[in-house]
Design a protein around this nucleic acid. Structure first.
Length: 222
DNA sequence: TTGTGTTTTACGACCTCC
DNA sequence: GGAGGTCGTAAAACACAA
């Protein structure tokens, strides 16, 4: 039969019949096996089945491969089935128009299911990615909180040290404590960091590879 | 060969559109 | 009101492991 007759001037890929043994991803091997089984069951030679004249249940008979393929092509053309096309397909395929209608109904349902599954997979992938990103952000937040806590602790230590130092040595001129410690061996500011004038850098607390340089200005210590 | 899970065909109920 | 749509489901047909 001329496939183009079924679909008018449409762009039906006629190579479909040659290249695709299947309408829905079934392998040719599976299809062949299925056909053999069906033939054996129905006692039919080549004409597997449309009429089921071998005595099977006439109520529910499977379409032949060719019928299914042509219906599949027609479905790809247009998922809706208008009356004229239904009648034409039924006549061409030797089927009841009702069968054609039912086939389209079921095919639409399968298509919808497949679409939903694909959409679900896509959304799940996006969801997983979002969860991963959230984990990264939470880790980052945790790290920043730890750094903040350490810095605050250091600030408190410096303030208490500056307070006691100023009171006992220079009568309360604590404002310049950081700057004037001068690297005294006994001072808590004897490390190199305290030399960083005019303010305090928390780099020793934060670690060398930290990208966040938290600085405490001198007025804060006053 | 058989039990079981999946796919396909068919139907009824209900809804929408013309 | 009729035709054709979706949705849910039954049951036949089928695939496949044990």
């Amino acid at each position: 039969m001329d496939k183009h007759q079924l679909f008018g001037s449409s762009n039906v890929d006629t190579t479909f019949f040659a290249a695709n043994g299947t309408a829905q991803g079934e392998t040719s091997k599976q299809r062949a096996r299925r056909r053999r089984r069906r033939s054996a069951r129905c006692g039919g030679g080549d004409g597997d089945g449309g009429e089921m004249d071998g005595g099977g249940d006439p109520k529910k008979r499977r379409l032949t491969d060719e019928q299914a393929e042509i219906l599949e092509l027609s479905f790809r053309e247009d998922r809706k089935l208008e009356t004229a096309r239904k009648v034409y397909l039924a006549a061409e395929l030797g089927l009841d128009p009702k069968q054609v209608a039912v086939w389209f109904q079921n095919r639409r349902a399968r298509h919808k299911n497949k679409t939903l599954e694909e959409e679900f997979a896509r959304l799940k992938h996006a969801h997983d990615a979002a969860i991963l990103h959230k984990c990264h952000l939470e880790n980052e937040l945790l790290r920043l909180k730890e750094r903040l806590g350490a810095t605050e602790q250091e600030v408190r230590r410096l303030r208490s040290a500056a307070g006691s130092h100023g009171a006992s040595v220079d009568g309360g001129h604590a404002a310049g404590a950081v700057g004037v410690c001068g690297g005294s061996p006994s001072s808590s500011f004897s490390t190199g960091t305290c030399q960083q004038q005019p303010g305090f850098s928390g780099a020793d607390v934060l670690g060398r590879d930290d990208d966040l340089m938290m600085c405490v200005p001198e007025w804060f210590l006053a």
